[in-house]
Design a protein around this nucleic acid. Sequence first.
DNA 1: CTGAAAGCGCTTACAG
DNA 2: CTGAAAGCGCTTACAG
Lengths: 327, 327
Amino acid sequence: MSRVTSADVARESGFSRTTVSYVLNDAPGVSISEATRRHVLETADRLGYTPSAPARALRSGRSDVVLCVLPDWTVGPVIDTLIDHLTTLFAEHGLALLVFNDRDSRPLTELWRAVTPRAVLALGPLTDTDAAAMRTARIPVVGSALDEDPHPETFAVPQHGIAELQVEHLAARGHRVLAYAAPSDERLAAFAERRLAGARAACRRLGLPEPRTRTVELEIASAAAAVRAWRADDSVTGVVAYNDEVAFAVLAGVRAEGLVTPDDVAVIGVDDIPLARLASPALTTVWQAIDAQAEHLTASVLAALGHPVPPPRPVGELFHVVERAST
Amino acid sequence: MSRVTSADVARESGFSRTTVSYVLNDAPGVSISEATRRHVLETADRLGYTPSAPARALRSGRSDVVLCVLPDWTVGPVIDTLIDHLTTLFAEHGLALLVFNDRDSRPLTELWRAVTPRAVLALGPLTDTDAAAMRTARIPVVGSALDEDPHPETFAVPQHGIAELQVEHLAARGHRVLAYAAPSDERLAAFAERRLAGARAACRRLGLPEPRTRTVELEIASAAAAVRAWRADDSVTGVVAYNDEVAFAVLAGVRAEGLVTPDDVAVIGVDDIPLARLASPALTTVWQAIDAQAEHLTASVLAALGHPVPPPRPVGELFHVVERAST
DNA sequence: CTGAAAGCGCTTACAG
DNA sequence: CTGAAAGCGCTTACAG
């Protein structure tokens, strides 16, 4: 009672394995009589035939899986949404997106060897070893949205642009002395750095003093301390938060200090998570066009695979401020 | 310049493919001279040899991948944590966990056929078709934590127990008239139902009136309307929220109605998401032992694969209340 | 300790 | 339109 193979279908239907294969794969350039086709299909169905993926992969030298390697960061709702979009988009091209959470504990190498993906979409940095090994195995690797020097076809979200938007928003509201609330999670450092750089640049451009930067943990005490310091030393009135979670902490810190948002301290986040509108007060934040990001990422991978990809529609708006009560 | 095969290693090292294979796989019960072993290994390394997973899978009839099918629910931080634990645990057994976001749009069938996983861990319900097909393909499927009638070895989180804990907590605080804030997301309905049933049972047991149930969207207006109705019709003083997100909405609704938490309305959530402690006021919630859940799920899969699994350590505490200011 | 050979399931030139 | 055959890369009895 072992697995049903195409040979079984051939035997059972009375045709050759060649014919069966032609029918099953809708082989181009081969004409099969309708009766034959139907008979084969019916037999395959009746037998419960399932093609063997490994055999197929061995034969063709390729699988239909795109491996998405998730870096070690806290996976937030934004990434979830991104993956969702990616899965759908790849599916439209007959490719299945598989997600792997990269952690130090387990070697990525073994995994992608076991899966032999058609391509790898690395949303975070890869080990040099892994990258080299993939190159050797001739698996196209499309870099993260963080790459400083992306392949020409890779799409990178301009992290600095996000922070610039935040600064501009606060400046337009009349805030002159700004603070930057950085995340404490080291895994976010790479992103935070780039965003902070964007904030700095925007301040410079707008003639504002350098933003006061402090790491804010997701705890009231930490946030309160930061708020206290910002107010005492520099009379900060606007806080640019790394993301909505950090912004929530800052809001809590402001409250804890007996201050009021936005009157005493305005706060702006990034991501527009579902809870943002439920914050007290409702959180102003930067919305990101995740779908567009997904589209470009997908296009990059397809291009790397040599698919004829229609040029992705112009990027257009990648993010914009969602104004709420916190600024 | 195609791929390096074990045959290449054999040719290059001057040994037979058999010997090479023995060395490369540390074949048990075969002794190879140290010199030979070293030479083969060195050659493989020098050539950059990578075993072909499809060939291996075809040969052995099995892959080293466990496919985790994520249902259509909003993936929250809790699931992320769970997957993280699962990935690590499976890795310890030489299995790679791959996550697939199930969506209506794309057939699961094609995917697991392409991956030929050793086992499937379905965190949500599967189509009958898929389930049947997997059975035919002899891929063990371990059911979700939601199964009403799980396999004996499957571990199910008692959803109702979570709500019971919530009700007990509020009752202990003197609340008599409780409300249940259900999520609006239909994909959560299955969970919500079970939790609501638990809340009902607990109320009955404690001699409290049936909890007033309302669906609360993640918007202030919706939550405010619910709070208004609860207060007006039934003078509800305690709200059991489906999860922390819904609890955030209720908190916002209470504020919007000019009421105060916990004096006018107490609120308790589920999950203890990072933002819970940053709510205004800090949210009382139910913490879940995700690691224990992951352990049991992993053990279920390994058992289904016939691995000699040590009996999982006793479940112990699966969840407990984290007391904060909202109750 | 090592080699020659079979076979996992599939697809695809190559002949009919 | 269909069949016999080769070969993708690997592992493992089976003989030496």
